[in-house]
Simulated assay, not measured.
Amino acid sequence: MTQFVLVAGAWLGAWAWDDVLPELRAAGHGVRALTLSGLAEKQDVPAGQQTHVRDIVGEIERLDLRDVVLVGHSYAGIPVGQAAERIGDRLRRVVFVDSGVPVDGESFASGWWQGREALEAVIAEHDGRWPPLTAGEYAGQGLTEEQTARIVGGGTPHPGATLTGPARLERPLGELPATYVKCLLDGPEPGAAVAELLKGERWELVRMDTGHWPMFSRPRELAGVLLRSAATA
């Protein structure tokens, strides 16, 4: 039985996967959605980048999970990629859902499309946290008004230190068995770092015709992608 461990991106907690979990469980797999420190019900817990890596590794080791498909969405691809190499032979496959990927010594902010300084300035202006998007900023991402309201209503400010702290990789990320899910409404092609990784034999690309939050806009389709990814590991 595969054990899925699901980690959502910035501002979100385990609740973001609520519509995906039933499909995975119906297929007979173990499923665990994880809230990272500093977010949702853990929003009062101090957190840096390596805190989030430890959150993930610690949960997998605490539950003694094996045959793990580790899933990281958006920001969470950064700590998930680091955790994937640290859990060793517990890992079956890592799935990056329209996410960043860790680059040794670099942070999430390093790859921010407006530049690192722009994101750091926003964090500084909001007492060390990255404020959630407003409803209007989710336009064009394939979400209904109800789905947008769920994301906005459930989102919590994201701890800034997790975004500016550097990733630490112990070996090349391309050595991991991985699937990268590109959500086309958020851009037609993966970024340069991902494109380079996809040249390797152990990485595959899957495209979804939806926006950046497929666990809300296309949960059953995303569950199917995850199930197929586990089967190819």
Rank of each mutant, 00 (worst) to 15 (best):
R150A: 13
P79G: 06
T35H: 13
R129N: 07
R86S: 08
E204K: 14
P131N: 12
Q49Y: 14
G174K: 00
W17Y: 11
V57K: 10
P190M: 07
G9H: 03
I151A: 01
E170N: 04
D19A: 15
R116C: 00
L227C: 03
L34G: 02
G111D: 09
R32Q: 07
Q114W: 06
P157F: 07
E196S: 14
F108D: 00
T148A: 03
A84N: 02
G81S: 10
V53R: 03
V181K: 01
A167F: 05
F96L: 11
L169C: 10
E106W: 08
V95P: 10
M215C: 03
L176S: 04
F108T: 00
A47H: 05
A10T: 15
W213D: 12
E196H: 10
T179N: 06
A178K: 01
T210I: 01
G153V: 09
G136M: 09
Q50D: 09
A161Y: 10
C183R: 12
L12E: 14
G77E: 00
R25A: 14
A178V: 07
E23H: 14
T134P: 00
D98Q: 07
D89G: 12
L198I: 06
G38K: 10
L63K: 03
G155M: 13
P22W: 14
V5M: 12
V45I: 13
R25E: 15
G81A: 11
T156F: 10
R25N: 13
R202P: 01
W130D: 05
V194T: 12
W112A: 12
R202K: 14
V103K: 11
P131I: 14
